[in-house]
Amino acid sequence: MTPRHVCALALLVAGIAVLLLSALGLVVLSRPYGRLHALTPATTLGAPLVCLALAVETGAGRAAVKLLIIGVLIAAGGSVTTMAVGRATAQADDLVERDSPE
């Protein structure tokens, strides 16, 4: 087992753990905003960690770059969607003015 492999495994375990915690949070946290909080670590931390682990495992090259790009995409997409979902929740609770666009 090479150090690189160990490193990848460690990253993988960390990433999976974050994802599992998020899933747990999704169920356990009761209020809608709480559920939103559960989403953030999964997209911004968990998924990129796993992508990093995979990139480390494959080694430098085009495949690794692709994996890292995917990680960045998930992270960016996740934060934007979390905001949008939050806004939708706020609208539903009438916290935000409802002049939503077509």
Partner: peptide
């Protein structure tokens, strides 16, 4: 014609970047 919509800046930025991707 529908009224022009208001979109959160983050969504707009994301959409603009993601379209070509």
């Amino acid at each position: 014609a529908p009224a022009p919509g208001r979109v959160m800046p983050s969504t707009r930025l994301f959409g603009t970047v993601m379209l070509p991707i």
